[in-house]
Amino acid sequence: NYPLYIRSTPMESELKFHYMVHTSLDVVDEKISTMGKALVDQRELYLGLLYPTEDYKVYGYVTNSKVKFVMVVDSSNTALRDNEIRSMFRKLHNSYTDVMCNPFYNPGDRIQSRAFDNMVTSMMIQVC
């Protein structure tokens, strides 16, 4: 449960987003533990909206190896429906898998892959 990669835009309230992502892990943990009882292979990786705040929406995604992705978006951004979020997570997951496939990457280290970075940047540009 420690950050592998964290990026936010705009940069000014970075700390706030860090806190937000960190607190959302509570919900992720809870969701995982209740889901653990259900069939593991039929598990939906996308956790949906984790919790609503006034200004942001926090979405979560957990891979089968319990790697968590958390996305915080502005709640005024109505262009982002559930489906878009879902596909963004899938993209993230794919990209993460690519990172993991890198034999020089040591699982658990911070991600410093340029490809992953570019992907996240492009995703952020697309949204904003």
Binding site: N1, Y2, P3, I6
Partner: peptide, 13 residues
């Protein structure tokens, strides 16, 4: 808590 979870940015703040 923050130390054990490895959120160094938050810990630093």
């Amino acid at each position: 808590d923050y130390r054990s979870e490895g959120w160094w940015t938050l810990l630093t703040s």
